[in-house]
Amino acid sequence: MTYESMLAETVAFRGHKGDVGEAYYARPLGGGPWPGIVLIHHMPGWDEWIKEATRKLAHHGLATIAPHLYFREGPGSPDDVGARVRAAGGVADEQVLGDVAGSMEFLRAQPYANGRVGVIGFCSGGRHTYLAACSLDGIDAAVDCWGGNVIVDDPKQLNAKRPVAPIDLTAKLRCPLLGLFGNDDENPNRDQVNRTEAVLKKLGKTYEFHRYDGAGHAFFNAARPAYRPEQALDGWNKVFAFFRKHLATAAAARAA
C-alpha cells in the first residue's frame, strides 16, 4: 500500500510591490522534489472550488499555491471582498502579474521544489494565465482554462486596469501553452478560440488546444450546472499530462 499525504493550509506570500497577502497552498508530503504551480482564481474569487482544485493538483504531485488576488480589499470573507473588487472594476493586470511573480518566488524558495513552475487559471484567471505566460520570466508551462477576453474586439473594454489585449502579447509567449475550451462558451466563443489558435500557430508557438462539445464555460466546476463530468475528467487528465511533460521530474507519477 502506498502511503498518501498532503498538507493544505493558508500561507503568507509577498506579491506586487512587496505587499504581503494570503494564499492557499497545498503540497504533497514526502521528499519530492515537486514542481510548483500557481493557480489563478476565477472572477468570483478565492472560493471553495478554487481550494478544491488546489488540493487536486497537490494530489497529483504538484505543490500548488492559489494566491488570494483580492486580499488588498480585505479583511472579510472572500465573497464580500470579491464584491468590493467587482464594484471597483476588477483588479489591475499589473497587480495580478506582480502577485503571480511573488507566488512563483514562494514556490521556488521551498526546499523540496524541483525548480520548475507552471501556471493555471480559470475564467478571468485563464486570461491572467495567458498574460503571465507572455509577460513573466520563469514560467515553464501555462494552462488557460476558458479565459475570456484574451481577444478584445471592442477597444472600449481596454482601460487603465486592463490596458492591453493579451492576444497582442502572443509574440512574447515564452512557454508551452495548454488551452481548454467548451464549444458552447460565449466568452471565449468558438471564433475567438479559433482566432487565438491562429495567432499561436502563425507565430510558431508551442501549444495544445482542446475543445469540448457539450460543454460551455467553467465545465470543471462541480458547484455549477455547467459541470460536465465526462469532459472535466478528460480535461483534468490533459492538465496533469501537460504538467508532467513540461514540469515533472519524478513528480506526479504517484497519482497518475
Binding site: 472572477m43 472579510g76 464584491a83 467587482r86 467553467a218 455549477r224
Partner: peptide, 26 residues
C-alpha cells in the same frame, strides 16, 4: 455574472451598500 453561492452558471447579483460609510458591509 458568475455567482459566489447560488447554484447557477450566471446570476443577477445585487449588493446593497453604503458608499458614504465606505461600502465595506453589504
Amino acid at each position: 455574472d458568475h455567482p459566489f453561492h447560488a447554484p447557477l452558471d450566471h446570476a443577477l447579483g445585487i449588493d446593497f451598500i453604503s458608499e458614504a460609510d465606505g461600502g465595506r458591509e453589504r
